[in-house]
Amino acid sequence: MTSSVLEAQKLGRKYGRRWALRDCTIEIPSGHVVGLVGPNGAGKTTLLKLASGQLEATEGAVTVLGDRPAATPARLARIGFVAQDTPVYSGLSIADHLRLGARLNPRWDAAMAQERIARLGLAPDQRAGKLSGGQRAQVALTLGLAKRPELLILDEPVAALDPLARREFMQGLMEATVEHEFSVVLSSHLVSDLERVCDFLVVLVDSRVQVAGETDKLLATHYRLTGPRRDTDRLPADQQVISASHTDRQSTFVVRTDSPIHDPAWTVTQLNLEDLVLAYMDKHTADRRAALEVQR
């Protein structure tokens, strides 16, 4: 499958007079576990809600799994959505939640749901309100998975969890993606959550996609260059500068390039995912500052 799971053109959504997302154009290919990273307020939640059909766009269009998301049962069945803070009915037991899923979803996988709950060591008759944050997230994930969607969207599922619970949650998600074929879009403002899970990364800042690509390729084409001070415009044309910082004698660049770097003046280091994302977030603020200065 090479088609895209999620495609947005100039997508925008206004709450009252405030734009939560504006002019967002994005394309996410299918068959990946996609990490959507961005600072708070970048529009991640709004984008995901628009994609899952929970919100209607104020402007632009979004296509999910080749269709406009619409609130029909058949469409809802194809997309799973685990909301921020993984809400569950505190008055209902885990078994009640599974029964709820079974009654409301045509493709419900009861065996899988029960097996997952058993593997997590949770008692089905336990009330969801008594669960820990991590267990609650697991129950919400189970509901999302057992629905057997073609695309599972998770909005900051681990934001409120402790590190151990985060790892267990991500592990559970990984195992499920290996076992059943479906695409995942996962948002977070922490790269470390996504590092081991995602094979595709989208950096969203201020409704704009800063960079999108397969994680391996991104890591293989980004470098940090450290060396004697040099102006940005004296770098080779095939090296796209993402961020630059200078001291009196030294310059540090983060560049993107497909060709290897041979210049002996540079000390070349590989970036990890976190540095890469931070470089793009810096780039956005630097660009904006430059734009403001031009206006003055």
């Binding site: 899952s52 058949a74 709820l100 409301l104």
Partner: peptide, 17 residues
């Protein structure tokens, strides 16, 4: 208030129903 509308609206059932 509990956010559970997001849970139930993402089952295969329309809001109207």
């Amino acid at each position: 208030e509990a956010g559970t509308h997001l849970l139930v609206w993402n089952q295969s059932i329309t809001r109207g129903r």
